[in-house]
Simulated scan of single mutants.
Amino acid sequence: MTSRVLYLFGAAAPPVHDVSDVISTAQDRGYTVCLGLTPTAADWLAPHITGLERQTGHLVRSQYKQPGTADVWPRADVIAFAPATFNSLNAWALGITSTFVVGVVAEGIGKGIPMVTMPCVNAAYAVHPQLDLSITTLRSAGVRVLYGPGGFVPNPPGQGLPSAYPWELLLDAVDQQATPTL
C-alpha cells in the first residue's frame, strides 16, 4: 500500500503553532502531508517554513500558483483544515476564495475530495449567526465539521488553551474519511 496524501491546511489561530507535531503524527499514521496555510498563518510560521518543507518534503503553500504552472503537490486523498478560523469558515461556506487554502477546499467540494475541518473560534464569535449558517452549509456539502460535542468547543475570548486543541480528533476523523490507496 502506498502512502495516502493529506492536504493539511491551517489558518491563523494559536493551535497552528503545533502543526509540526501534527505533521509528524499524520506521517506516523501513513500519510504524505502537504501543508497549506492562510497568508497570516504563513506569516506567523515564517521562521519555521523551511523546516516544515523539509519535514513534509513539499513546498508549504499559502498563495495560488501562476496559471499554466504545474502542480507541485500530489493529488489529495483527503483534506483537513484546522485550525479553521471564523473568517476562513465563513469564506469557505460563502464561496469567497480569496486565499489559496479556501480556494482549494471550496473546489474540493465539487471534486468530491473527502474533507474534515475543525474550527478554532472563541465564544464571542460562536454566537454570531453566520457561524452556525456556515457550519450547516459545509456539513450539507459533505464536509465533516468537528464542532461542538465531540469536536472543538469554544472558550471565552482570551482564555483559550492552544495546547488543548483536540488534534487527535481531527486525525481520527481524517483516518475515517481517507480511502486507502492500493
Rank of each mutant, 00 (worst) to 15 (best):
D43Y: 04
H58I: 06
L45C: 00
P180G: 03
G95W: 01
L131R: 04
P14K: 03
V22E: 04
G10W: 03
R139M: 08
S140G: 12
Q130M: 15
P129N: 08
G148R: 05
T97D: 10
I23H: 02
P162I: 04
A12R: 06
P162D: 01
V104G: 05
D28G: 13
W167P: 05
S62G: 03
G51H: 09
V33T: 11
Q27W: 01
R4T: 14
M118C: 00
D18K: 05
E107C: 14
T32F: 04
D28W: 07
G36W: 04
T2Y: 11
N155T: 15
D77T: 13
Y7M: 00
P154V: 02
L35C: 00
G30I: 00
A11R: 03
T181F: 11
Q176S: 15
G68Q: 05
R29S: 13
A76C: 13
T38P: 04
V121F: 07
Y31V: 09
E168D: 15
L6K: 02
P14R: 02
A91F: 12
A76S: 11
R61Q: 10
D71T: 10
G103C: 08
A82N: 06
D43M: 10
R61V: 00
Y125W: 15
A82I: 07
T99E: 14
A93S: 12
I135D: 09
M115N: 02
Y64F: 12
V174L: 11
H128P: 06
I135G: 09
I96Y: 12
L133E: 10
T56S: 00
A178H: 03
G30D: 02
V145K: 04
I79D: 08
F152S: 01
P67Y: 06
A46P: 00
P47I: 00
N90H: 06
Q130V: 14
I79S: 11
Y125A: 14
T25L: 11
V16K: 05
L37T: 04
Q159N: 10
P114I: 02
T25H: 09
A126D: 12
T50M: 00
D21E: 06
